[in-house]
Every structure is written in C-alpha cells, then in structure tokens.
Amino acid sequence: DHWHVHIDGERIRLDGASEEFIRTLEELIRRGTDARELKEIIKEYLR
C-alpha cells in the first residue's frame, strides 16, 4: 500500500507504513502535535 500525508504543505510518502502507524499518526494529528515534530516521527519510522 502507498500512503502519504500532507504536513505543512509538504507531501510525505509513507511507503510500507503499517495501518497501526497510520492510526498513531492520525491520533497525534488529532492531539495537535506540531508539524515539525510529526515530520521527525515519520523520518524516524521510515529509517
């Protein structure tokens, strides 16, 4: 599956992301997590 998110107007691909990770991201977004912080979390995950 190819997922991607838009954060700060930037399109970030989440290739190979699990549904669990996507749900976690959605939860963080709902909580109002800062965009820079979200991008860091995604970069760490994709390593």
Rank of each mutant, 00 (worst) to 15 (best):
D1V: 05
H2T: 08
H2F: 06
W3R: 15
W3N: 13
W3A: 15
W3Q: 15
W3E: 08
H4Y: 07
H4W: 07
H4K: 01
H4P: 03
H4M: 04
H4S: 04
V5L: 06
V5H: 02
V5N: 02
V5Y: 02
H6L: 12
H6D: 14
H6V: 13
I7M: 06
I7E: 01
I7K: 00
D8F: 01
D8G: 10
D8K: 05
D8V: 03
G9V: 03
G9Y: 03
G9P: 01
E10A: 05
E10R: 05
R11I: 15
R11G: 10
R11L: 15
I12T: 02
I12F: 07
I12G: 00
I12N: 01
I12A: 02
R13M: 12
R13F: 14
R13E: 15
L14F: 05
L14P: 01
D15F: 10
D15K: 09
D15E: 13
D15P: 14
D15G: 07
G16H: 10
G16L: 08
A17I: 09
A17K: 02
A17Y: 05
A17D: 03
A17M: 09
A17H: 04
S18M: 05
S18C: 02
S18I: 06
E19Y: 07
E19F: 07
E20S: 12
E20V: 05
E20G: 09
F21Q: 03
F21A: 02
F21M: 07
I22W: 06
I22L: 10
R23W: 06
R23E: 08
R23L: 10
L25I: 13
L25G: 00
L25E: 00
L25K: 00
L25P: 00
E26K: 12
E26A: 09
E26H: 08
E27N: 09
E27C: 04
E27Q: 09
E27G: 06
E27W: 04
L28Y: 08
L28V: 05
L28S: 04
L28A: 10
I29H: 02
I29E: 02
I29L: 09
R30F: 07
R30I: 11
R31G: 11
R31H: 11
G32A: 04
G32R: 03
T33Q: 04
T33S: 07
T33G: 06
T33F: 04
T33K: 04
T33E: 05
D34V: 07
D34C: 05
D34R: 08
D34I: 07
D34S: 12
D34M: 07
A35Q: 07
A35E: 08
R36T: 14
R36C: 08
E37T: 15
E37W: 12
E37I: 15
E37S: 14
L38T: 01
L38Q: 00
L38W: 01
L38M: 05
L38S: 00
L38E: 00
L38F: 02
K39P: 01
E40T: 10
E40P: 01
I41Q: 04
I41M: 12
I41L: 14
I41F: 14
I41D: 00
I42D: 00
K43L: 13
K43D: 15
K43P: 02
E44Q: 10
Y45E: 14
L46F: 13
L46I: 12
L46E: 10
L46S: 03
R47E: 15
